[in-house]
Write a protein that binds this DNA or RNA. Sequence first.
DNA 1: ATAGGGTTAG
Length: 506
Amino acid sequence: MIRAYSLSETFSEEGFNLYREMRRKGITPDPLSFSFVTKCCVKRSSVLEGLQVHARVLRDGHRSDSRLLTTVMDFYSSFKRFDDACKVFDEMSHRDTVAWNVLISCYIRNGRTGDALVVFDMMESGHSGSQPDDVTCLLVLQACTNLGALEFGERVRRYIQEHGYGHLRNLCNALIAMYSRCGCVGKAYQMFKGMPNRDVVSWTAMISGLAIHGHGSEAIDAFREMLRMGVAPDEQTFTGVLSACSHSGLVDEGWTFFDHMTTEFGIMPNIHHYGCMVDLLGRVGLLDQAYQLILSMSFSPDPTMWRTLLGACRIHGHVALGERVIEHLIELKAQEAGDYVLLLNIYSSVGNWEKVIEVRKWMKEKGIQTTPGCSTMEVKGEVHEFVVDDLSHPRKKEIYEMLDEIGKQLKIAGYVAEVTSELHNSGAEEKANRLSYHSEKLAMAFGILATPPGTTIRVAKNLRTCVDCHNFAKMLSGVYNREIIVRDRNRFHCFREGQCSCNDYW
DNA sequence: ATAGGGTTAG
């Protein structure tokens, strides 16, 4: 009977039915059977049944079986019942590495990513009573990837090397992702190059990393090399390849891959693939094609899909389609503040100030709160945070003086502020007459100020960067001879010698 | 024999 349960790893339905049969026959499950059936409940999404199993576990007196409780904890975490998961953790009598790992995984799923790093700290310093293992490292690297926490990620890499996990492929794959998403595509590539046996995940991570950095043709080269090496691409690989085409404006290549993924690799396009194509077509101005593609899908577009198209309408000042897209979002009851900001920018980009005022008034009436732009910059392990027109930084006087000085220098080099892009969020409202300082400008000025000449300036921003700040950064990189890497909401902009690796605003 | 896990649109 129990042997059958171990099979239930892959046959959750069968495992679950066996448990029922067991209960019917009045056989008392042992901790092992409980563990199996709990996992089956996760796999077949049976919340209620899982709760019943937990109740039974407690009734049968397995409160001190921490291995079993770890599985139960993961069950709660899987269904986003974080308080329940933490309660199980708190009540455990012993907590081994796996229990701590489940806690980290729970934090990451719950958006408490920073706390995942705190747990790693506790484990490494011995305060938890358990040492991090390879899975801990994998999870914490995921957290670093999400946070863009490069220094912490490097620390985890040292731990990996010092503890003999350096050869583990999944850890190398996670490191490739961490480095790319922290803006170090070069280090990601070194990691990738150093791997003796790359699998489809390694290749996909590398291709996606090149993609978000705007290295479209390198990403496509990597894809071709992957095929030559006999590694079969999967859905995710094509997501990476199409995203590379999108970030680099490679329309023909995009269509070719989009067709080939079905005809030659038998992979049906999913919502991510369509999303990349809509973004690709939209960015280069083929808005109607993008719209038609959405309408041609066999499944319903989600709000994000419409938002992608709305973003393209903003770039190209396409008012009519923009209004239609907003209608679709309203229909889905999914409109957000950011969508109205985009609509505002569409109107302002074509100089329709009446509409701008109308939408803004309407937003005010409805009490729609926009997300304030916020940029962060790490200097010597310390994170400095800036918001639009920020006056809170202790070195604000120096920063604003530096911005004025930079402004003068850039003007000499030919920089002209773009007023339309000033309407980035409500914080910058009605400031079109004077230069408003978006958070990334403040962060960049601080970077020039606080780091020695020649140091790369790394800025992370919570929203998309605007055309004006993008121009500003380009000029800044040339005039001050600095490499500037800005991570915005969905990609990296690497500014060097007056150019950007992206072609979002050409 | 049992627990935790890599890549992934905008």
